[in-house]
């Protein structure tokens, strides 16, 4: 029983990490309708930047969150403007290849600049365990969970309450209609892609204390993030959040009760089953087969 509670707790913490990454991926997919295969590499870029800021300026990773969000927003916006935008009219194939190419280029760029070594950020205090009734979580994980909740709530308010948010929602629902209503769709796409990447910027600051950065760190997260996005119904932030929690818990439980080397098999199997039998996602928030 104790183990079960600890595993679930652990799964929720893991889930909140997936949530921040997946919400960004969902934003990009839901609005721009592009699956960003370079999403994990955005995370990697952010984590190297956090490392550099910590090394040279002595910034705590959490302080770096602000510049990271801004930097990744810029990266995302630029990628949208110069790579995705010109391909919006092209086949989906081409868009996928473009982001795959970007991902390959970024991983190898990191290898070129930083080598294959592993860099770890000093983050005093945040890796301390916090004991709650005999169960253990880390301060850094609690921060992650709170950030994930604040992020989803904040994005919700932004989408509902601000004119820009409404324009984004309108564009997501019907691009042509939004255009007719005077929304500058191209600009909305740039902003949406930027926001999706900015989520990863936040994630990179929060994850850095927990994982050392290597050129391939993004690939550790990105396939899981895709699973989460599909589980959540592709378009919905709330779906992505819940999906992340479920995958986190599944990851944790199957690693213990089935076998640690088969946990990926478990959630990939869930992923395939959801895609095939319930393409609207587990909670019916979206559509996968359109």
């Amino acid at each position: 029983m104790d183990v079960l509670v600890q595993l679930i707790l652990n799964g929720i913490m893991l889930g909140s990490m997936y949530a921040i990454i997946s919400v960004g991926l969902t934003l990009i997919f839901g609005i721009v309708r592009v699956v960003n295969f370079a999403h994990g590499e955005f995370l990697m870029v952010g984590m190297y930047a956090v490392y550099l800021l910590s090394l040279h300026l002595g910034l705590h990773p959490y302080v770096s969150a602000v510049p990271m969000v801004l930097m990744l927003f810029a990266v995302g916006a630029l990628v949208q403007r110069f790579i995705i935008q010109p391909l919006l009219g092209a086949d989906e194939h081409i868009q996928i290849f473009a982001t795959v190419g970007l991902s390959t280029a970024l991983i190898n760029l990191a290898l070129l600049v930083f080598g294959a070594d592993l860099y770890s950020v000093q983050a005093p205090g945040v890796r301390q365990p916090l004991s709650i009734g005999g169960y253990t979580v880390l301060y850094a994980q609690v921060v992650m969970l709170v950030s994930a909740l604040v992020l989803v709530a904040g994005l919700h308010l932004f989408m509902q309450r601000t004119p820009l948010g409404r324009a984004i929602r309108a564009t997501a629902q019907n691009r042509n209609a939004a255009q007719l209503m005077g929304v500058r769709v191209d600009r909305i796409y740039v902003i949406a892609f930027g926001l999706g990447a900015a989520c990863v910027g936040l994630a990179s600051a929060l994850i850095s204390p927990l994982f050392p950065v290597t050129p391939t760190i993004g690939t550790y997260f990105v396939l899981t993030a895709f699973v989460v996005v599909v589980l959540g119904g592709m378009r919905s932030m709330y779906g992505a959040f819940l999906g992340a929690m479920i995958i986190g818990i599944v990851d944790s439980l199957s690693g213990y009760y089935i076998a640690p080397d088969l946990k990926e098999v478990v959630y990939f199997a869930i992923f395939i089953l959801i895609l095939i039998f319930k393409p609207t996602g587990l909670f019916g928030f979206g559509r996968g087969t359109e």
């Binding site: 290849f97 190419g101 970007l102 991902s103 390959t104 280029a105 970024l106 991983i107 190898n108």
Partner: peptide, 22 residues
């Protein structure tokens, strides 16, 4: 001599091909 350079070039070329020669 330059670890990762050829992978980087490869990735960039792919992006350029999608943009210029779809």
């Amino acid at each position: 001599s330059a670890n990762g350079l050829h992978g980087f070039v490869y990735g960039v070329v792919l992006v350029l091909i999608t943009l210029t020669l779809p």
